[in-house]
């Protein structure tokens, strides 16, 4: 028997083949006449100034940190939600406490201005 994850693997391989096929078709069918102007970086016709790969603003980093915290929380919440009906009141109250701690975290981030776009 083919296991679920074997089938998932097949899907991944086929999807890559399909999309790679699409791009390769483009390379095969389309003409390639490269000129010096054509391959310059497109920035509305103005020559690009300075390097692109520079350090970026930190607000993005703060959102990433917050996301990490809440994403891990979600991973814990899913198994709990599946077993919610059979676990009883105790698990529900425990989860409320867990959520409460996270909400305090969100409130703290909010208070410190991490959610403001500066």
């Amino acid at each position: 028997m083919l296991s679920d994850w074997g089938a998932v693997f097949l899907f991944f391989v086929a999807a890559v083949i399909f999309s790679a096929g699409g791009v390769v078709t483009g390379f095969v069918l389309a003409p390639r006449r490269t000129t010096a102007q054509k391959v310059t970086t497109y920035e509305c016709g103005v020559d690009t100034i300075g390097p692109t790969w520079v350090q970026f603003r930190t607000s993005y980093f703060l959102y990433a940190l917050l996301f990490l915290i809440f994403d891990v929380e979600t991973i814990y919440l899913y198994p709990w939600a599946v077993k919610f009906q059979s676990l009883g009141l105790f698990a529900f109250i425990e989860m409320i406490i867990f959520l409460f701690i996270l909400i305090i975290g969100l409130w703290y981030a909010w208070k410190e201005g991490a959610l403001e776009w500066m």
Binding site: A30, P31, T41
Partner: peptide, 12 residues
Amino acid sequence: KLMTKEIVLPKN
């Protein structure tokens, strides 16, 4: 049309 359009590979 999209298939027969040139795929430009910018130099940088």
